[in-house]
Each structure stands twice: as C-alpha cells, then as structure tokens.
Simulated scan of single mutants.
Amino acid sequence: MATESTRDQIFAQTQQVVDFAFTAAVADVFPDMVRRSVPGYETVISQLGVLARHYAQTDSTIYDLGCSLGAATLAMATQVRQPGVQYICVDNSEAMIQRCEQRLQRQLPVASFQTLVEDICQVPMQRASIVVLNFTLQFIQPAARQALIERIYHALLPGGVLILSEKIKFAEADQQALMTELYLEFKRANGYSELEISQKRSALENVLIPDTLAVHHERLQRAGFSQSLVWFQNFVFASMIAVKA
C-alpha cells in the first residue's frame, strides 16, 4: 500500500479526462494532493482541534462528514477533553474509509470512533455537539445542500456547531478573476504543471460546484442557525462556523 508521503501525479500525463472521483489512486496520494491544492489546509485542520476543544460537549457525538483519511477527526480527538465523546467518520469512498480506519486504529482507542461507508445525506445523526463538513459540501449536488444543512441543524444539541470549510466563489467578476489567478499561482508554486492544473480543473468542473459566502450564510440562517461567521479564508477557500442557540 502507498505511504502518506506519495506524491500526487494523478494528472501529470495527458489523458482522457473524466469526472473526478475519490478512487483508491486518489486516496493513495490524498495527503500530498490536498496540501498542494488547498491553501491553508494544514491551518484549518489544526484549528479544528482548537474549535473542538471549545465546543465539544460531554457524552455527545462529533460527526466528520466526508472524512477522507480522518485528519479532521484526529485533530479534534487530540484536543477534546470532555468525557464520553464518540467520533463518527462518514465517507462514500470505500478506499478513503479503509485508510481512515487504519489510521484511526493506530492513534485512537477503538471504542471511541466508528467509520461508515455511507451517503452523508442519508446517514442518521443525533446528539451531536460538533459536525464537520471539511471541503465536502462543495461535492454535494446544489439542490440537496439545504436539506443536508437542515438535517445537521436538527441533529445538533443546543450550543452545538457546524464547522463548514469550502471552496468559494465571488459575486464580483474582478474579485473572482484575481482570487482565481492567485490560487493558480499557489498551485504552480507547489509544483503542479499547467497540464496538471488544466486536466484537474476539467475533471472537477461538473463535480465541485462552489457557492458564494453569501449563499452559505443564507442557507445556514434558513436552517435555523443563530450565528454564522468566517473564521478563516485563504484565496478561494474559507471555513465558517455556525452556532445552534
């Protein structure tokens, strides 16, 4: 099995581009891919631990929806001090969940977590103090996003939070153009070729559909959250926290 340090070369050769999917090949290179593709990713992951330390509640559940390899769960579990917290990691990619479970087994008590290969729009949730959607909602069909956010809201305990990290778009064309170009420079600086950038963009075009921050705030408010705010932003990526009163 590939190691976590395997370099992402998924799009390094000219190929017939198909819609992006979280396959075993992607899972093998995912740590390198996300580090070189998402500016501020390491900061978001580490600060999830700080947020979880503050918001976790005794005898509650923390859901990591679209968990990939479990980095968010590990960051939170390292910091949470409240007793009786259960972590549930959900992803529809079997390859991701297999690697996630192996990783968590090495670093967490087995009784403290559960991994599920399931559609996050269908997974049952209850007694949640924290729900994390870390660069996940952007892959859900836009028409299904409101219902998912509402399900999360109803699963949260009073005082619970949704932490939502996403690629975002900008309403103003000039801002969108500037932030896109700066983001492309970030990828070039991390060693991606123009071929890799172009082919991955084509693969993601129909799969990753971003919203503006205004749309996110409106969706969260409509679901019932009393407060939502951006706590981190880097080029075209942002992370928000939404609080249930």
Rank of each mutant, 00 (worst) to 15 (best):
Q141H: 08
I168H: 04
R188E: 02
A173E: 13
R127D: 13
Q126W: 10
A177L: 14
I152K: 04
L156R: 01
I163T: 10
L133C: 11
A128Q: 05
L137N: 04
I120M: 12
M179W: 04
V131H: 05
R127F: 13
T136F: 02
C121L: 12
H216W: 14
L208T: 00
L157A: 03
V207T: 06
T180C: 00
D174R: 13
I168G: 00
S202F: 06
E194H: 15
D174P: 01
N206L: 10
I152M: 09
V131T: 03
E194R: 10
R201N: 12
R151H: 15
Q141K: 09
Q122P: 00
L184T: 03
A177H: 15
D119E: 11
Q138A: 15
I197V: 13
P158L: 08
V207L: 03
L178V: 09
A214E: 13
H216G: 06
T212W: 05
G160K: 12
L148Y: 01
A177E: 15
N206D: 08
E194P: 05
E181L: 15
S202T: 11
H154E: 08
G160P: 06
I149W: 07
A147T: 06
Q146D: 06
E196D: 06
L204Y: 14
Q176K: 05
F186Q: 00
F186K: 00
E205I: 15
D211M: 13
K187R: 11
G160L: 12
V123F: 13
L208C: 02
T212K: 10
I163R: 11
K200C: 14
E205F: 15
I209A: 12
Q175W: 08
L208I: 01
A171Y: 02
S165G: 14
L164S: 06
A203W: 05
S198D: 12
Q126D: 09
L184A: 00
L164R: 05
I120S: 01
L182A: 09
Q138H: 09
V131P: 01
A203N: 07
A155I: 03
E172G: 01
L204W: 04
Q199N: 13
M125L: 13
Q122I: 02
Q122A: 14
F186R: 00
R151N: 13
A128K: 03
L204E: 12
L182G: 10
I168L: 07
L184M: 05
L137Y: 05
H154N: 09
A155G: 12
Q146Y: 03
N190F: 07
A203Y: 06
P142N: 05
H216D: 08
E196W: 10
E185T: 07
A144Y: 01
R201T: 14
N190H: 14
L156S: 01
A171T: 07
T212S: 11
V215C: 14
Q126V: 08
E172L: 10
G159D: 01
E196V: 08
I197H: 07
Y153I: 02
L208W: 04
V207D: 00
I209R: 11
A214S: 14
Q146W: 03
K187T: 01
Q146P: 04
R127S: 11
I130P: 00
L157V: 05
D174I: 15
P210G: 09
E181S: 15
A177S: 11
C121W: 10
